[in-house]
Design a protein around this nucleic acid. Structure first.
Lengths: 145, 145
DNA sequence: AGAAATCCTAGCAATTTAGTGGGAATTATT
DNA sequence: AATAATTCCCACTAAATTGCTAGGATTTCT
C-alpha cells in the first residue's frame, strides 16, 4: 500500500501547473523538464487529469495545459483518485456476484469495517488538502533552503 | 492504492485467532477452512505475523498458533504494517542515495508533504483500532443477521 | 513409529507499474 | 501554404508485485 509514481508525478505536475500556467498554457515537455519526469509518461497522466476535468488543454503550437479550476477548489484527493484509481474500494472477500445485504460469513465483514475506518482517515487527510495549500508549501520550501 | 489480500486475509486470520485460540492453539488448516483461504498462502502470512511477534506458535502435532498478546494490545495498524509492508514510506522522488536534509528540487517535497498528511490520517485510523474491537465487531455481525 | 503440525525456500502465472514508440490531428507562426 | 509545436490516441514492453502452488525438513503429540 503505497503511493505510486502516478500519484507522485501527478501531484508535482499539478503544483507545477499551479505555479506556471496562470497566464499562459504550459506544455508537457516543459513540466517534464522541470520535474524530471519522462514526458511520454507524464502525457498519459495529464491525459487522465484532463479527462477528469482537473486540467484544460489548448491544442496546437504554443498550446498546453492549464488548471481547469482555482487551486483552492482542487484537493489532493481529487488528483490521487484520478491517478491511483479508487483510493480504496471497500469490498468484502466474498463473491462479488452475490448480492448479500449482510455477508453470509460474517468474518468477512471485519475487513470491510477496518477498511471503512482507513478510508475515512485517508479521505479526511487528502480531501482537506487543497492544491492551493500545496503550491504555497512548495514555495515555502524554496525560501527555506 | 488498495488493501491487498495479504492485509485482508491477515486481519481475518487474526480475528479468527482471537475467537478460537484463547484456550488452545489453532492450526493453519482450521483457520484456512473457516476463512476459505488457501492454507499454503495463509501459512506464509502467519509466518510473517509470527516473525513480527504478533502470534506465537507451538510446533508438532496438536500444535498451532495463538495470539502473542492481548487483543487489546494489538492494533489493525500492527497487522497491516507487517503484511502490507511499510504502510507508507514517505520518500522523495529524488535520488535516495543523496542525503540531502532539504531537497534540492523543492517541488519534490510536495509529495512528501502530502504523503505525511495521508500517513497521519491512516495511522490515526488503524492504530486506534484494536483487534479486540474487531473481534467484537465480528461477533456483532453474527448477532445482527 | 506414525501422524499432525510448523517451518523454510523456491518457483510461477496473472496483474500492475512505469515506461517507450509511432504516429494522427490541431493550431500558431513564418 | 509550409513548418514546427503541440495535444491526442493506441499499442507494446520490461520489471516488479501479487497470489498463489510445490516440495520438502523438522518438531512433537499419541
Amino acid at each position: 500500500m503505497k503511493l505510486s509514481t502516478k500519484g507522485r508525478y501527478g501531484l508535482r505536475a499539478m503544483v507545477d501547473l499551479g505555479v506556471y500556467s496562470e497566464h499562459e498554457p504550459v506544455s508537457i515537455s516543459s513540466i517534464a523538464g522541470r520535474q524530471q519526469i519522462s514526458d511520454r509518461y507524464l502525457e498519459q497522466l495529464i491525459g487522465k487529469l484532463k479527462k477528469a476535468g482537473l486540467v484544460s488543454s489548448i491544442r496546437g503550437a504554443q498550446g498546453g495545459y492549464q488548471l481547469a479550476r482555482d487551486p483552492k477548489d482542487i484537493s489532493a484527493g481529487d488528483i490521487l483518485r484520478v491517478l491511483e484509481g479508487d483510493l480504496m474500494s471497500v469490498t468484502c472477500d466474498g463473491d462479488s456476484e452475490k448480492e448479500i445485504p449482510c455477508c453470509e460469513a460474517s468474518d468477512y465483514c471485519v475487513t470491510r469495517y477496518v477498511w471503512q475506518k482507513v478510508h475515512e482517515g485517508i479521505i479526511a487527510a487528502v480531501d482537506n488538502l487543497t492544491l492551493a495549500e500545496l503550491i504555497e508549501q512548495s514555495k515555502g520550501f524554496h525560501g527555506g533552503c
